[in-house]
Design a protein around this nucleic acid. Structure first.
Length: 563
RNA sequence: CGGGGCGUAGCGCAGUCUGGUAGCGCACCUGCCUUGGGAGCAGGGGGCCGGAGGUUCGAAUCCUCUCGCCCCGACCA
């Protein structure tokens, strides 16, 4: 493709709205433009990248015998009403009415429609296993779109759905997908982890997320470098460091107006690990007192797993239920349910004395208070792996894919059933598996760039070779350029030719920004010796080769080795 | 939805406090010149100062309302 005829609007300056590196570089290098919050235009270069990623996905999905199909993005409400999600989901679903005033919605995901289809077309155990996938636009009215194309309101997703006779068969389909995902992300040149994850409102039992480490990520995972334990911090099980506590007798102490752990810690001159944070929350059933160590943070999702949805108690509820105002709550002597983090299971602590302006020290677990013990704190860097005691690492990550064992959550309400070999009617057992191609692209940039621009992995680069004729007025330069361009085209090597009438500096800068893996520099001086220069964008290595060998070397030494 | 910030030419910004003819750099157009790391010279085009009301002789500037965008948090099936 000729640069002069392609829309590649590069920018010298960083647009002020962009924060994430991938966002900045995609704007600067002329890959994307923003239409409105969370809505992006994919310009020609970006679209080529997305298609390369999608094709890798297609190859690996087809390899596990999943079949591509296409689904409506506009859905009738009834299907969503049957599974209950029409009501369970709030403002995040785009809703509208058609001309007959029928309730409709825009697709956020396709569990319902896939199960609807399965309900009609799968009748017998002989029809399974099946895996169907789509690479299509989905829409969510996100509360807060952010970081360029990382979190948008309209996005392309590869979603696949498996249909099996029972849970055992589902586990097989799940494993196949997990394996395919490993191949896909590896081929896309990403560093990634497969981690245990929360099933959330998707339902089902088992799920994993594929996470690409990056500072721009919205999620955090805990990784054990020794045994390989890897989990989203939302459910990571870790053992905190237990300090040596100095023994103290139980005693109330005056702490006028000191309420937060921080304040009391400074006032009494004890580190935060000596404190118990007592938090009153109200679940759907009852009030619950949650206890975490002073230096820890309560993890709301972990607690939700134990007590269901909850909210923090209001001021007057605290006084009514515990008989003391917030800031002086201690774990002692309450009749309500108490859930405590295991970090508090030994030691001697300080906490509120359940009396205004007083704290108590010398509080011992199982002596001064009793509780149900569950891990409810946010995992921190350097805590110990619950499997092997090795210090874990907490990293920021971008979620690039997820896989769920859904079970019968969607098939039962939609009456997707089949007859087994004994003629018994059984619900189809379902799995769902997503990949966000745009996030793969963004993660690739986050993980592969330098101060000059993007450095694409060969597999997903918009072009493989970037021809840079430095002086288009020079006859010999352009002759060689055309000759090489034809050779590359004939060999199906994607090539961009910078045929613009620009000075060399401009072309070099743009080439580095755009990030095509191999730059072929055609300069008049080298050409006099019949040489062109191959510059490796990643290593910055420059190799002089003869014009006649160029194709062969690019093909054999560069592209083939990357396969 | 809560908190904070910002809307002035395609992009990056100044001007707003203290009202008085809308500016700078880059980009763009024409010509000359130049061709190994974002060249130079000369000439030129482009803005309802996000929008609506108001105050004033006069509003980018002051007041009210509104819309949009970014960041933090909540949310994220």
């Amino acid at each position: 493709m000729y640069y002069s005829k392609t829309l590649i609007p590069t920018l010298k300056e960083v647009p002020s709205d962009a924060e994430a590196i991938s966002h900045q570089l995609m704007l600067r290098a002329g890959y994307i433009r923003q239409l409105a919050t969370g809505l992006y235009i994919y310009l020609p270069l970006a679209w080529r990248v997305i298609n390369k990623i999608n094709n890798i996905i297609r190859q690996e999905m087809n390899a596990i015998e999943a079949q591509e199909l296409s689904m409506p993005v506009l859905h009738p409400a009834e299907v969503w009403q049957k599974t209950g999600r029409w009501h369970a989901i709030g403002d995040e679903m785009f809703r509208l009415k058609d001309r007959t005033k029928r309730d409709m919605c825009l697709a956020m995901t396709h569990e319902e429609i896939m199960a609807w289809l399965a309900a009609r077309e799968i009748r017998s155990y002989r029809d399974m296993p099946q895996s169907w996938y789509q690479i299509q636009t989905k829409l969510r009215d996100e509360a807060r779109p952010k970081s360029g194309i990382l979190r948008t309101r309209e996005f392309i997703m590869k979603d696949s759905y498996s249909f099996d006779v029972d849970n055992e068969a589902l586990v097989l389909s799940y494993a196949k997908h997990a394996e395919a995902y490993h191949k896909i992300f590896k081929r896309c040149g990403l560093t990634f982890y497969q981690v245990e994850s929360d099933t959330g409102m998707m339902g089902g039992s088992v799920s994993h997320e594929f996470m690409a480490p990056s500072p721009a990520g919205e999620d955090e995972v805990a990784i054990c470098p020794n045994c390989g334990y890897a989990a989203n911090v939302e459910l990571a099980k870790t053992l905190p460091e237990i300090p040596q506590y100095e023994d103290m007798d139980f005693k109330e102490i005056s702490t006028p107006n000191k309420k937060t752990v921080d304040e009391v810690s400074k006032f009494l001159n004890f580190p935060p690990e000596y404190f118990i944070k007592s938090l009153l929350v109200i679940s759907n059933e009852e009030p619950v007192l949650a206890l975490v160590r002073g230096d820890h943070t309560l993890h709301e999702k972990k607690l939700t797993h134990l007590i269901g949805n909850f909210r923090p108690a209001k001021m007057e509820e605290i006084t009514n239920i515990l008989g003391v105002e917030a800031g002086f709550i201690g774990p002692m002597g309450h009749k309500i349910k108490i859930i405590a983090d295991p970090a508090l299971s030994t030691g001697v602590y300080i906490s509120g004395a359940n009396k205004k302006d007083y704290h108590a020290k010398g509080i011992k677990p199982n002596v001064h208070f009793h509780a149900l013990w569950h891990d409810i704190h946010v995992a921190k860097d350097n805590e110990k792996c619950h499997n092997c005691q090795t210090p874990i690492r907490v990293e920021k990550v971008i979620e690039i894919g997820n896989i769920f064992q859904l079970g019968t959550k969607y098939t039962e309400p939609l009456k997707a059933v089949y007859l087994n070999s004994k003629g018994e009617e059984k619900p189809i057992v379902m799995g769902s598996y997503g990949i966000g191609p745009a996030r793969v692209a963004a993660a690739a940039i986050e993980q592969n760039h330098d101060e000059h621009g993007i450095i694409w992995p060969v597999s997903i680069a918009p072009f493989t070779v970037h021809l840079l004729p430095l002086n288009i007025a020079d006859k010999q330069t352009m002759e060689v350029c055309e000759q090489l361009y034809k050779q590359f085209n004939d060999n199906s090597i994607d090539t961009l030719v910078d045929d613009r009438n620009e000075r060399p500096g401009v072309k070099f800068k743009d080439a580095d920004l755009i990030g095509i893996p191999y730059q072929l520099v055609l300069g008049a001086k080298s050409l006099k010796e019949n040489h062109v220069e191959i510059k490796n964008r990643k290593t910055k290595e420059i190799t002089k080769v003869s014009v006649d060998d160029t194709l062969k070397i690019i093909k054999n030494d560069y592209i083939e080795k990357k396969r």
